[in-house]
Design a protein around this nucleic acid. Structure first.
Lengths: 231, 231
DNA sequence: CGCTGTATTGACAACGTTCAACGGTTGTGG
DNA sequence: CCACAACCGTTGAACGTTGTCAATACAGCG
């Protein structure tokens, strides 16, 4: 199967690679299709590969011993996942489950380290990925420590609209099926609360709700809700 | 001033360096003493240096626009801080304030990158630092999303005891002055709540409280509180 | 047409924060 | 050495937020 190289080249991890190098990197990648709801890897497996998401969405979900589910990260097209853990040759700390049918490229960590030896500047790219994840994680910790559920939810929906939104003229549709439970697990609350709050926002014209569907109608007011200047 | 090289060598970032290399690295480090309550760097400054804490404790505190204070990380002796951001040549995302008088070593990022060019394996060490921070951050997110304040507090105190505890025979003393406000800002709650919960634990013989002081008397029961098998 | 998974809503209880008052300790300056 | 201020900690009460329980509705699917 043929991959569009210009697309892959535009992804942060591979920036500043020449065509030849990109070819050799792509030649040792494995293309994989995964159906909706299946898992790419499972928590606890040894991290021998990492993945680049070409298409669709993937949920990164640690499972805790006390049964509480939640979603650590939502992977959008063009992002890598399983990357940091693979470099460190440890175990995946979470399960990667698809939210849609997805298309992805996989590399073994051996192939990658091999390649990096000849392209040392990729170390910096890798560090940038790790740094970005760390920044996102710390931002989220701050939100969880200091903000009420309403505001956290506004931030989650805002990010969804920015990263997974498709402009439909009269609003921004979240571009994959997402349930209240999913949103609750991204926000750190219950689906009941999410339902209540989204309903109240719908009454005020900020969003439109549907079954596994969410449309943002008023980004301005949503932003205001997210930064606390509106309740 | 003379630094004990065997101590520095035992720190993760510098593992697998020979004596000679260690000397050359130490020769371009700056030793610095900072008084209790002063700041090592401030949020928003461009990250031109990173630091290795030799002695004392440092609090990493992002400040949000809405005034909410909190403590993102507590740095223990032997740990580096400001490291990831310095490598990425961005701005410090938080303020580093000392909880005690501290002694630390500082390197400019230029000296570091220079040194890394001749010791490529340090890239992996750096990645390990970043990976560890990321893991800690994600663990904390999970705690904040799914656990009640009591249990989160138990986890915070447990970590304090493990990382900053000194065994006193009849209990484990947290080895630096820490206020209820500090603990609250590490847990994501108010000092009132911390006071209440710690008082109830004191009544049950789990801890002993004092002014800017905390002694863990019963690690077993504290662990049970932390993993939810006890309320 | 019943089954399953998703969503909405109300009532209620539990939890946590805010407000307020008070007591104790430390440090300072007269 | 004492008075005083500043800071830290504790505790109670009221309030608001959030989670839990329960009932219902609705859509997709065999």
């Amino acid at each position: 199967m043929e991959i569009d190289r210009t697309i892959v080249q535009s992804f942060p991890l591979f920036s500043r690679l020449c065509e030849k190098d990109l070819d050799s990197l792509l030649s040792c990648a494995v293309l994989r299709r995964v159906a909706q709801g299946d898992t790419v890897f499972k928590q606890g497996e040894s991290a021998q590969s990492f993945f680049l998401l070409l298409n669709g969405r993937v949920k990164i979900m640690p499972v805790s011993m006390d049964g509480h589910q939640f979603i650590m990260r939502l992977v959008n097209p063009g992002e890598v996942f399983g990357f940091v853990k693979a470099i460190l040759r440890s175990e995946y700390p979470a399960t990667a489950q698809t939210a849609t049918e997805v298309l992805l490229l996989g590399w073994t960590i051996d192939a990658w380290t091999n390649f990096v030896e000849r392209h040392a500047h990729l170390n910096l790219n890798a560090m940038q990925i790790a740094g970005q994840r760390l920044g996102e994680a710390q931002l989220r910790i701050r939100e969880m420590s200091t903000q009420f559920v309403k505001r956290r939810l506004a931030n989650v929906v805002l990010r969804l609209a920015q990263q997974a939104g498709r402009n439909e003229g009269d609003g921004i549709l979240i571009d994959f099926p997402i349930s209240r439970k999913d949103i609750a697990e991204m926000t750190g609350t219950t689906l009941h609360n999410v339902s209540r709050i989204l309903s109240s926002w719908e009454a005020r014209g900020v969003v439109t709700n549907g079954r596994e569907k969410l449309i943002v109608r008023d980004m301005i007011r949503l932003s205001a809700l997210a930064n606390g200047s509106l309740t």
